[in-house]
Every structure is written in structure tokens, then in C-alpha cells.
Design a protein around this nucleic acid. Structure first.
Length: 851
RNA sequence: GCCCGAGUGGCGGAAUGGUAGACGCAGCGGAUUCAAAAUCCGCCGCCCAAAAGGCGUGGGGGUUCGACUCCCCCCUCGGGCACCA
């Protein structure tokens, strides 16, 4: 009997699949298609155990669908542009391109031994000029269709390094390298008009039936549709009118100030002549640009001295303040503050001694507001005080509607629908990204590059010894002739956000070598992605941008109308987490360490090499930059790919995060060896006559396993499917059935395991005389008649607590069950001669006696 | 700060509103062995000497004959917050 030797088995079957072209996607045979896609990886250097988990899930689906008669597309590529490559070039020298392609080679070499059923012939990286050239071509199409434009937007500016920083490069409001206080600065940047699609993107969420509800909810909230009132506060002498947007117009009588954003045109204008305003704007421009930073920053205001008139009473004037919590991008960049019914406004008014005016009170317990704003749900009735639209007892929602009506009729305001969703800024002042294919000409303005000159390739002769974008200081690349008039002009030196790269790769996989962005014929056949798998961290940005992009691509003729929602079903897998180990350098900046370099004891953790004490930060998503990654290569080396694949899907439900622990892989390896051993014994056993009852039992167990495992795979219950496979293996091992029945059962076991442990399954299949490759064998179908049990065990509860059980025929009628239950010892004892208050019989389920 | 999730034995976790803890790990006991590894068999939520019984799904309330599951409040942890990918 041969041992379970993964080092010979696994390469053998990988070669067999390769030679048979098992996983090369084709459109032939008139079979239904199935497109399964896992979010493609960033080539950080080496794969980690989270990648293995993610791609194994996709592979289980891909192999299962192949065996249920589908033409399967299961591709792989790399999201290869981005900051880490430039950081590596800065830190260790070399070129981002070299670093990136070497990483890709390494990762492919690590993925191949895992035996994923991928169509490697379709692989590409987004930094391939063939890919980003097509992206540039689409950018030009988008420009023609008015889907791209330029405007000013704020960036994190490092005044020492004289460069733009990413949010993650701003630590506590300071630049990560220079340590200088970051300031917000405006630059002219490129934007996609995603906001034109707000309503459509929101509406279409309803149709995403196979998306997780939480993702749909997150996207809805992100788009943030609101209805409110837009109107102007007339200025008094010297002040222009200020247009505001409010979602609570009903509280207008509670207004105590008008607030404008520090970036509001009026604030900017004032700053030119008023040094206090200029100083205030400079002060609040410190720190990062993130919503979180702005939200958490201390609320600061400055009285401009300007006054405006209340729209309902021209004698009532309100002061105009500049406040740092008002965003220029949302609404009109100006608000009125109603402290009685908004906690932030209340804090602001208490801080700056502005009045607080109640506009409504709780019907019972009508207490005026002191230090806590009164903000009941908008569906709750409240008592209005002198409401201008004549309301007395009404809900917030009713009051808002009535107010908008009132203002529209009176002609001083109009109801407006607003969205929180902002246009997508795609400009990046960095080298390692897709160049934006436009040229700036003094005479012609912004001119797109001619399509025949695409791709606009990145120049290779660049260095990263100076901060900033090397494209900016590369005259021979930057200087060019205007495509329109031929005069000397300059190329755009901004590159695209890497989210652009990942917003259409799924479409490119359908025709990865096409000389246009997509091929309609292939897109029509393969789109949509039937099952998309990726991390919940992409719930909003990547998935929303992709939904926008598919629409934009359709408008430009690159995708059929049927593909504007590109992902039919979405599954968000949990992350593999691990503690982070960190020490501090001489400047108190964090230095991260790999788990294998750290020795963890009960008393604490130390660096293996130096014994230096290490701080342990609780588990977080595995990330190369934090070095809390586990390399699967050692596990594959020691136990084989199937063990790694089996292990990452067993135990934890796929949607949940898992904390990585090294123990447990061995147990998986033992189980697979046991399956191999059982199968070998059965393969070598001579035919015999078992007894009929044993045969019947094993057949029932087999069909139960087919049913349960199929359901598990269909519903992403991989851990549950694996538990059933354990149970079935136990049943097979203990069975006294005849050899032919056992052989059939073992072949079925191999088939059911094949999506998870394809190499072992092929081996067992061939050992037992299975025909051809198990990868191509038809998935087994459960015989319903073998699934039903004749008798069922009914638990008997007394007052909801289980006290006994009875065994009854499956279809025994209710009255009979009641009789049996009342005759049960435990029930008789509990009743003590009395009558039950209530008797509940759920046929086939449970009996509950209420006493 | 705002939006979205998750929390069940020593551990990973199972459970259409119907027997809480399937399956696996660890642990304990046994068989086999000169011995060990491997393998096989059994036990295994907590309290109680055991039985009977009681308690038990992050905490507190509620709905229900019956709640891990539904509702309300709270705690802790995780994800996202538009330039990490």
C-alpha cells in the first residue's frame, strides 16, 4: 500500500490538468457559462495565508461549477500600480517596475503549487502597457462623453518635502517622513462624474439580490440621499446673500447663526483683506484631509462680523461664522445652526455664547434644552412652538414636508434632493500609475492624446532620491507637441488612482488580449461575473466605483447594457488576522516585525535575534506594511497544498474573520492521510458479500453526504461541508458494507472532496478505477428517496425545557403523538395527576407540554 | 466622531423561532507496542462526590408555549470613512 506522498501526487495531477487544458476557459459546447472571480491581489511580495483562503474559496466554486457542466472562467491577475512600489524604490533603491514584476513572479510561483483551477493564459497585471493603454483609451472616451472634468480639490501637502501625501502617510497630522505638520492645499485635479449617477446607483441597489444586505446598506448610506430646503439669507449692508442647504428646515425658527465653510468663496474673499480670517483659515487647514480627522477635530469658529437677515423676519439678523466642521463639498458649503436640535451646533453655541432657541418640545415633559440637544426620531410627534407653517403636534418628517411646501409657496426657498456621494477624484501626483493621456497646450488648452499614440508609457529612466513626482522633473517625457496645433506643449504628469485600474479588470479578463478595451462578443458571453469574492473592506469604494465604471463603459460602447451591474452575486469573505509586533526607533516611530522573528512568552514578547522587548498590538487584517503576515509556503512544503486548502476552509465560516494559529494544520494533514489510507484499503480489498442492512446504511450516509456537501458548497457553507465530509469519512471507515458499496462510497467521497482537495481526490479516484479526471467527472446527485428517515426522535419539553424524548414514525398524526407524550413517564410525573395548560405538537419537530 | 458588522465550552465553531455545543482541535482514559511514533476505541460546557437538579450562547430588559435566532438599551472587538489596496 502506497503512502500519502503529496510531493509526488500534487505535481503529477497539476501536470495532468495542464496537459488536458482542464481550466482553460472556452465558449464551446453550448454549455452554460459561469464566471467566478476573486478580487485580484496587490503584488506585495509574497502571498499570505489570507490569499490562500480567498483563492481556495473561488477554486471550490470554480471546480464545482466545472463538474456541474459549465464553461467556467476563473482568471487571475495583479493590481500592480500603487504606492508600495515607489516606497520600496525609495527605501531600498531599484525601480518600481522591477520590484513589481519580480513580486508577481514570486507570487505566481507560490500560487501554482496550490493547484488552483485558474486559466493562467489570461493573466495580466494592471501595470502592463497593454492594459493601461486600453485604460487611457477609455479615459479619452469618457472625456468625449463628458464623464471626466477638472476642478480644484484639497490634498495633504507636506511643506517640508514639498509633496502630496496619501492619507496613510499622514500620522497624527504630520508627514510620515518629514514629521512636518501637514496642511490642506488646493490643486486642480481630474474627476469622474460619478455624482451624475447617484440616483441610478442607489436605485439599482435594490436589484442586487445576491449581494450581502450589509454591503447594500453601506452603499446606500454612502450615496446618502437626502431631501431638504435650499434658500438664501439676504445680506445686510456689505454682505452678499448666503445660500444654504438644510435637511431640517422645520427648525428655522431656532437658527442662531449662519455658518460657512473655511473654503467658502466668502471666507476666501474675506481672507484677502482680513488678517484674522486669513489666520483662522490657515489654522483650520492644518492636519489631514480625511473625514475622520475633520470630524474628530475640535470644533472651531470665527465670527466674520457679517450679518444676514432671517428669511421669516427681516428685522431678525444672524451673525455669520466660519466653522471648520462645514464641508464645502456638501450642499452649498453653508448652513444655519440650530443648537436646540443638533448636538454639534449646541456645543458650538455654548462655546461661543450664541443663543439657544427651542422650536419644539416633547409633548410630555416639555423641558427646554440645556446641555443636551433634543433630537427625537423624525417619526415621533413633538409639540411645536409658534411654527410658521402653523404646526402644533406633528412629527419631524411631517414638519419638514410642510416647511418645504410653505417655503416653495412663499417663494423664498425650494425643496432640493442632495447626495453625499462626491465626484471621484482620480488624479495622483505620483509616478507608478497609469498616465492620464492628455496634453496641456497654451493655445488649445487641455487636449487628449491621439489614440494611435497610446499607450502613453511611463518613462523608465527615473529616480526616487528626491521627494515628489519624477514625471514632473522629466523634461524629455513631459515636453511634447500639441496633438491639435503641433506647438510645444506639456504632458499631464498626474497619474490615475489605482481604483481606476481595478474598476474594469473583470471586464478585461473576458478578452485580455483584445486590441480594444474589451471585445463585445466575449463580454456578451462571459459577463456578468456570476460570483465575485472579496474582502468586506471593499464594500464601498471598489464596488461602487466598479458599478459606475461599468455604466460609463456601456455609454462608450465597451460593455453591453446587460453588464452595467457587473457582479451578479457577491460574497465577502472574512479576513485572516494576526497580532502586530512593533518596536520603536530613536524617533519613536514604529518599526514592525514578522511573527517568525518574535518569540512570544506568557510574560511578553521579545525579538528572537536581540531579545528586545516587543509591543503586541491586537489582531488586525494581515498587511505587508504591518508585517503581521503568515507565509503559507512552509505549510505547503511540510504538508502539501491539499492540507493548506482543507485547513483554511475548515472550522471557520468563510464570512467571518479568523485569527491565524499555526496548530491545526497538522490535524488536517492527518485527516487527509486517513482518507488516502481508507481508500487504499478499499481499492485493495477483494469483492465480498456484505449484509443488506449495512449496504443500505452506507448508501443512505453517502446520499446524505451528497446532499449536505452540495448544499454547503452552494451556500458558501464550506466549513459545514467539511464537517459533513468528516462525518461521512467516519461512517465509511466504520461501515461493514460490501466492498462494491464501499468502493462507490469512497469514489463519492473523493468527488465531494475534489473542490477542496483536488490532488488527493484525483489520486483516490484513479486508485478506485474512476474514469478520466475527477475534475471533469459529473457531480453526484443525491437520491431523494434515500434521504428520508422512517422514524424521528421527538424531544418532549415541559415548560420549554427538554425532559424526555420519544421515537415515533415520521408521519404519525398529531393526536397519536399527543397521546404518547401524555403517557410519557416524565410528563406523568410533572403533571402529578393534573391537566396540562397547553400542549404544543410540531410534527416531526418537538412536543412542548405547558403546565 | 459617523456608517456597517461580529460576540456560543479550554480553542475553531454547529444549530429553517423547536433537544444549545454537530464536526474538528486540545485534554483525559484505554487498546496495540519491549518502548515510542502512527493508528484504533471511549470520555469531554459549568456547578454539585454522584444522582437528581440547577446554571449556561458578551451584559440588561422585552415578545413567545418555546429565543443563539426576533425587538429595545448597553459593553467589547473588527471593517469603512473618498490619496493603503
Amino acid at each position: 500500500m502506497s503512502a500519502y506522498d503529496t510531493k509526488t501526487i500534487e505535481p503529477k495531477w497539476q501536470k495532468a490538468w495542464d496537459e488536458a487544458g482542464t481550466f482553460v476557459a472556452t465558449k464551446e459546447g453550448g454549455k452554460p457559462k459561469y464566471y467566478v472571480l476573486e478580487m485580484f491581489p496587490y503584488p506585495s511580495g509574497r502571498i499570505h495565508i489570507g490569499h490562500v483562503r480567498n483563492y481556495t474559496m473561488g477554486d471550490v466554486i470554480a471546480r464545482y461549477k466545472l463538474s456541474t457542466g459549465h464553461n467556467v472562467l476563473h482568471p487571475m491577475g495583479f493590481d500592480a500600480f500603487g504606492m508600495p512600489a515607489e516606497n520600496a524604490a525609495m527605501a531600498i533603491g531599484g525601480h518600481p517596475k522591477t520590484w513589481t514584476y519580480e513580486n508577481i513572479d514570486t507570487m505566481v510561483a507560490q500560487m501554482k503549487p496550490l493547484g488552483f483551477g485558474l486559466d493562467w493564459s489570461r493573466m495580466f497585471a494592471t501595470c502592463d502597457p497593454e492594459y493601461y493603454g486600453q485604460q487611457q483609451s477609455m479615459f479619452i472616451d469618457f472625456l468625449e462623453k463628458g464623464l471626466v472634468y477638472r476642478k480644484n480639490a484639497t490634498v495633504n501637502w507636506d511643506p517640508v518635502d514639498m509633496t502630496v501625501l496619501a492619507n496613510e502617510q499622514v500620522i497624527d497630522g504630520k508627514g510620515w517622513r518629514s514629521g512636518a505638520e501637514v496642511v490642506r492645499r488646493e490643486l486642480t485635479q481630474w474627476f469622474f462624474k460619478i455624482s451624475d449617477f447617484s440616483e441610478e446607483l442607489l436605485d439599482a441597489i435594490d436589484g442586487l439580490d445576491n449581494w450581502p444586505a450589509k454591503v447594500k446598506l453601506m452603499q446606500s448610506n454612502w450615496i446618502g440621499k437626502s431631501r431638504g430646503l435650499q434658500f438664501s439669507f439676504e445680506g445686510t449692508d456689505g454682505c452678499q446673500a448666503i445660500e444654504v442647504y438644510t435637511t431640517r428646515p422645520d427648525t428655522l425658527m431656532g437658527a442662531s447663526f449662519v455658518g460657512i465653510s473655511p473654503d467658502h468663496p466668502i471666507a476666501k474673499e474675506l481672507a484677502e483683506t482680513n488678517p484674522d480670517v486669513a489666520a483662522f483659515r490657515a489654522e483650520v487647514a492644518k492636519g489631514g484631509t480625511t473625514a475622520e480627522a475633520l470630524d474628530k477635530a475640535e470644533k472651531l469658529g470665527l465670527d466674520t462680523g457679517l450679518k444676514v437677515k432671517h428669511p421669516l423676519n427681516p428685522d431678525w439678523v444672524l451673525p455669520v461664522w466660519i466653522a471648520n466642521f462645514i464641508l464645502m463639498d456638501y450642499g452649498t458649503g453653508a448652513i444655519f445652526g440650530c443648537p436646540a436640535h443638533d448636538q454639534r451646533d449646541l456645543d458650538f453655541c455654548r462655546k461661543y455664547a450664541l443663543p439657544v432657541i427651542d422650536t419644539f418640545l416633547a409633548p410630555e415633559n416639555p423641558m427646554p434644552v440645556r446641555d443636551e440637544a433634543f433630537v427625537p426620531p423624525k417619526t415621533e410627534k413633538v409639540r411645536w412652538l409658534n411654527h410658521f407653517a402653523g404646526l402644533d403636534l406633528a412629527t419631524g418628517d411631517e414638519a419638514i414636508d410642510a416647511t418645504i411646501d410653505f417655503a416653495e409657496k412663499a417663494g423664498w426657498g425650494k425643496g432640493v434632493t442632495n447626495y453625499r456621494l462626491r465626484d471621484w477624484g482620480l488624479s495622483r501626483q505620483r509616478y507608478w500609475g497609469c498616465p492620464i493621456p492628455v496634453i496641456h497646450c497654451d493655445d488649445c488648452g487641455v487636449v487628449p492624446e491621439k489614440k494611435e499614440n497610446l499607450p502613453v508609457e511611463l518613462p523608465e529612466d527615473v529616480t526616487f532620491d528626491v521627494p515628489g513626482n519624477p514625471l514632473d522633473r522629466h523634461p524629455t517625457w513631459r515636453d511634447c507637441a500639441c496633438p491639435s496645433c503641433g506647438k510645444p506643449a506639456k504632458r499631464e504628469t498626474d497619474t490615475m488612482d489605482t481604483f481606476v485600474d481595478s474598476s474594469w479588470y473583470f471586464a478585461r479578463f473576458t478578452a485580455p488580449r483584445a486590441t480594444t478595451p474589451t471585445s463585445m462578443e466575449d463580454a456578451e458571453y462571459w459577463m456578468n461575473v456570476d460570483q465575485y469574492i472579496g474582502g468586506i473592506e471593499h464594500a464601498i469604494l471598489h464596488l461602487l466605483y466598479s458599478r459606475f465604471f461599468a455604466r460609463a463603459m456601456h455609454i462608450c460602447g465597451h460593455l453591453p447594457a446587460s453588464a452595467i451591474e457587473p457582479f451578479d452575486a457577491l460574497f465577502t469573505q472574512g479576513m485572516v488576522t494576526h497580532a502586530i509586533y512593533v518596536t520603536r526607533d530613536e524617533n519613536d516611530r514604529p518599526v514592525y516585525h514578522f511573527p517568525e522573528d518574535v518569540e512570544v512568552h506568557e510574560s511578553g514578547a521579545r525579538l528572537g535575534a536581540t531579545g528586545q522587548e516587543v509591543e503586541i498590538i491586537p489582531s488586525a487584517k494581515m498587511s505587508k506594511s504591518k508585517k503581521n503576515v503568515v507565509d503559507p509556503v512552509a505549510i505547503i512544503d511540510q504538508y502539501g497544498a491539499d492540507t493548506a486548502r482543507w485547513f483554511v476552509l475548515s472550522d471557520s465560516p468563510p464570512e467571518r474573520d479568523v485569527e491565524w494559529t499555526a496548530s491545526g494544520a497538522e490535524a488536517s494533514a492527518k485527516h487527509l492521510a486517513r482518507v488516502h489510507r481508507i481508500a487504499s484499503e478499499i481499492a485493495n480489498a477483494s469483492d465480498n458479500e456484505g449484509n443488506a442492512a449495512e449496504d443500505q446504511d452506507l448508501m443512505r450516509a453517502t446520499h446524505k453526504a451528497i446532499h449536505d456537501v452540495t448544499m454547503g458548497v452552494d451556500t458558501f457553507g464550506f466549513n459545514a461541508a467539511i464537517a459533513k465530509l468528516y462525518a461521512f469519512t467516519n461512517a465509511l471507515q466504520k461501515s461493514k458494507a460490501s466492498t462494491p458499496t464501499k468502493r462507490d462510497a469512497a469514489k463519492t467521497l473523493a468527488q465531494l472532496m475534489a473542490p477542496f482537495t483536488p490532488h488527493l481526490s484525483e489520486e483516490v479516484w484513479s486508485m478506485l478505477g474512476g474514469e478520466g479526471l475527477i475534475a471533469n467527472a459529473q457531480w453526484p446527485v443525491a437520491d431523494e428517496s434515500l434521504l428520508v428517515e422512517d422514524t424521528v426522535t421527538l424531544p418532549i419539553q415541559i415548560n420549554g425545557k427538554r425532559r424526555a424524548e420519544i421515537s415515533v414514525p415520521k408521519d404519525m398524526d398529531k393526536a397519536e403523538v399527543e397521546k404518547l407524550a401524555l403517557a410519557n413517564d416524565a410528563v406523568v410525573k410533572a403533571l402529578a395527576g393534573g391537566q396540562p395548560k397547553k400542549l404544543i405538537v410540531v410534527p416531526g419537530r418537538i412536543v412542548n407540554v405547558v403546565i
